[in-house]
Write a protein that binds this DNA or RNA. Structure first.
Length: 127
RNA sequence: GGAGGUGGACGGAGGAUCGCCGGCAGGCAGGAUCGCCUGCGGGAGGAAAGUCCGGGCUCCACAGGGCAGGGAGGUCGCUAACGGCGACCCGGGGUGACCCGAGGGAAAGUGCCGCAGAAACCACACCGCCGAUGGCGGCUUCGGUCGCACAGGCAAGGGUGAAAUCGUGGGGUAAGAGCCCACGCGCGACAGCCGGGUGACCGGCGGCGGGGCAAACCCCUCCCGGUGCAAGCUCGAAUAGGGACGUCGCUUCGGGCGGCCCGUCCGAGUGGGCUUCGGCUCACCGACGUCCGGGUGAGAGCGCUCGAGCGGCGCAGCAAUGCGUCGCCUAGACGAAUGAUCCUCGCUGGCUUGCGGGCAACUGCUCGUCAGUACAGAACCCGGCUUACAGUCCACCUCCGGCA
RNA sequence: UGGGGCGUCGCCAAAUGGUAAGGCAGCGGCCUUUGGAGCCGCCAUUUGCAGGUUCGAGUCCUGCCGCCCCAG
């Protein structure tokens, strides 16, 4: 039901259920999972541990963010996170359901403009 | 008009599309952690930053006093408190508005002051000056006089240094010296007194003329218990049903060992788990009271925003601030929201088009174009401090120049 | 949130408040057919930055900047 409603509305909602939040999930994903890198970021991909929405077998893709202090000050880090979330919100339909994606930003990511960051994300996810 | 000083205010605006966080109301769904929809209104800063001080609040500890340790340091005030703020004093800087200062004590004691210099703090004299007095020698009219620089006197001049026992001028003297005088400078000791001020201090009279460093140890005065919202409180799940002591009920049965408590071994019985069906393994006292835990784990709620709050007015005060009164409610997240993309405008600077003012440097409006639009993100809450910042505006004041 | 430490030449590093040692690297020279080794010489002006105390500061004090570490 909710999945249908989501897709009908374009699927651009982004709530707590769509995020990787626990430290355990982050640690589980970081070990031995598929990772691809672009110039200023790394994407780790792995099977999701999210909860299935009612009426569906597979949970939607979830997003996790890691932006360390080396990327910049708090304002710069927040800006990077917002842009990555924006990308995930709009491009989620093209990602695999049932997978978790952790985006690790590297130094320099804050100096990119939004379009450059998004093209690197597309490159690193292969989609 | 130019240059500057102080204090204060602000720090982008509008629109379109897609979103985020929490509140209220309604609806739908429905184990929760973690649902969805609609509507309404709310959603970062002047520094939210650095975490340098001070408090509130929290739990723990606590009779009082002292020591250790840490901190503060002109005076008087303000304040919940402060290392903050205000006014004033003193010293320094600036033509000035104004700015800067950890600004108690060097006679309680200890220590240090390299190199240079004779000498660096308790005494002294390298070059030098003198040699009146005494000494030696020459001459002598026997009164003296000349020479030497031995005794001795001096600290002016030279020289060293960041600093050398006040500076300049005059008197004075054998040469000199605060030895005396005038003006100045300084004062911790000698020696205070008068006047003003709550006080730091200031003015006057008199007296004296003996370095520096306490952001060296230290002395004096004053302040400080620890802990930090991951504080702390409440609820809940699972694993485990622990250990010690005591009391009561009197504990599945039999046997062996050791004196007992009790422990251990063998066999049977009951129950649970696993099984290749041979067996293997675990449990076999219970209740109550007191004390003591360790590990795993999945969390959730409260704390959590109405507060030393913000704004206006009035009164007191030079001011910081206080009092009174009226009005207002202004983020509460937790892998962590407050945005993303695009368009238009604003602002600043460069170039440029046109019109105007001026002898000129230049300047006002205007068309276009390019570039820039900062520093920075609440994490329990306040009061400060410090640091960062594209630019804009306001008030008062100072100096210089022009005109009248 | 709380606590601790470190910034000295390109690298490593020493310095009771009194001229910023030393080594490696680099540069120049000697030696050598050449290179290496060896020997000699050169190499800090901003001691992370800004102030202050002092006659004098890498050292003492204050405020910043950067890096590293620890506890929950």
């Amino acid at each position: 039901m909710q999945t249908d409603e989501r897709s009908r509305r374009g699927g651009q909602r982004f709530g707590p259920a769509d995020r990787v939040r626990s430290g355990r999930d982050f640690r589980r994903l970081s070990r031995g999972q598929r990772r691809r890198r672009a110039a200023h970021l790394v994407v780790v991909e792995g099977p999701s541990f999210g909860v299935e929405p009612a009426g569906s077998d597979t949970p939607g893709p979830r997003l996790g963010l890691t932006v360390s202090r080396k990327v910049g000050n708090a304002v710069a880090r927040n800006r990077v996170k917002r842009r990555v979330r924006e990308w995930f919100r709009r491009e989620r339909g093209r990602l695999l359901p049932g997978r978790d994606y952790v985006v690790i930003a590297r130094p320099g990511a804050a100096e990119l403009d939004a379009r450059a960051l998004w093209s690197e994300l597309a490159e690193a996810t292969g989609r």
